[in-house]
Design a protein around this nucleic acid. Structure first.
Lengths: 246, 246
DNA sequence: ACAAAAGTGTTTTTTATACACCCATGC
DNA sequence: GCATGGGTGTATAAAAAACACTTTTGT
């Protein structure tokens, strides 16, 4: 991403750029039943890129923080109680948005992107009847508006990294879950070969922040599984350690 | 950093915020002789925060990318041939800058921060005679303007993380360096107890991207040390692997 | 009884950590 | 010759990876 050599300024005269600041959300969910990662897209109902799918975004309002704006669009598109959200990256180069050229003053559209993960079956899409909104599997994406494919790729990398070394999975799992639920989530995102179930199990349990509730669930055939709970207090001391979940 | 629950929008009326976009650089260097990490600060010569030290920053110009702007301030303050630079985080909440309240229209100052690491003895500060500029050791920081202490803390965390799992050290070491030069750099940033020298050595050498040039240097007493070179080609295949340098 | 899912344990390989010791130079 | 920094090796502990096997359910 970062370049290595300083370039001469593009505009030695020093005229300042005029900015519109928006946030764009890369909202993921994981459908473990069908083994796929989904991203939330909305259909644009105006120019530019009319009728293209895009990341849900909004311009930032007066008095509103960037994170608040990110939560606001999220809440406009989806009802979700269980989610994780963090800032992703800021895309702000010239010529990101075709509207720039229309204005003689050369307005720039800067996008502060946010990364979110929501629980799939808890997330209820808010269809307002007018604009389209849908989950897309990552391997069946349409052509996206603006540079949103870039942003999405960046977000997907973040998703996989985060899963490996931080406990975001527990933000989108139900309060009580089986170790297999957890394993499925990891498998769906990271692929089959990241670790075998038995080793995954013992590694996670040894870390000591998964609390066996004693309760069991049985799902179809097979031995009933124990329900676990994420113990935030037990996790706290491990917070800043380089944890490995994989 | 990220919060967990959606808040109601601060401004339901939907009036858009008006933004000025700047970049602020957290520029680090490592003085291995005196065992300290330094950050580059400039003395403000105008309000607000007149005579406070601050991170070197600038507003983004017409036609200029964010990264170009970051390189531009860097180049204005310092002559450095060997450096690493990447985007850090975007700070854009309301009330970051006291100037906001002066304007009835409520201009917002958004800061896209960049993180840079430069080679200490290659970096020549550009004193223009007017404004102050200096390296400060991290444990002797003055009170900083705006929220720059926040940004700095965030950057310092990034510095330590990057050092652990990516090869940025080689961007600021000389072309030829001894393994002890490398070790000193790591020790200065990460503290004494991160690994003992002998283990650090063998781990790094086993990774296979350090090329022994055969040449030796002798510095005062003691056995002459081999000079190594970072072999970018040999490193390439390891790029996306979860490397451990510590 | 047997397939399916959950859970335990064992073996092997790899990596991390601690530390003892040899090597080559300046003074 | 001895202090100083450079460099190698070994012994032990801990983690990761592979995989065989037992348990408990539904059908």
């Amino acid at each position: 991403m970062p370049g290595r050599n300083a370039k001469p300024p593009a505009n030695p005269s020093g005229q300042l750029a005029d900015f519109k600041v928006g946030v764009d959300n890369v909202i993921f969910s994981v459908d473990t039943d069908q083994n796929r990662v989904l991203v939330l897209l909305v259909l644009r109902d105006k120019e530019p890129f009319l009728d293209y799918w895009s990341l849900p975004g909004t311009l930032v309002r007066f008095g509103e923080s960037l994170e608040d704006a990110a939560y606001r669009i999220l809440a406009e598109k989806i009802r979700a109680n269980n989610l994780y959200l963090e800032q992703l990256y800021t895309f702000g180069g010239p010529r990101r948005d075709p509207r720039e050229s229309e204005h003689s003053y050369g307005v720039r559209y800067l996008s502060v992107s946010y990364f979110a993960l929501v629980r799939y079956d808890d997330a209820e899409l808010i269809a307002d009847g007018v604009s389209g909104i849908a989950w897309f599997p990552l391997n069946q994406l349409p052509e996206l508006a603006f540079d949103h494919q870039n942003i999405l790729n960046y977000g997907y990398r973040r998703l996989r990294n985060k899963l490996e070394y931080s406990p975001i999975a527990f933000d989108v799992l139900p309060e009580l879950f089986t170790l297999n639920d957890l394993y499925q989530l990891y498998t769906t995102v990271l692929g089959e070969n990241f670790s075998d179930y038995s080793n995954f199990r013992s590694r996670l349990l040894k870390l000591g922040f998964l609390q066996d509730t004693g309760a069991k669930v049985t799902r179809g055939a097979g031995r009933p599984a124990s329900l676990y709970r994420f113990d935030a207090d037990a996790f706290a001391p491990l917070k800043d350690k380089p944890l490995v979940f994989i």
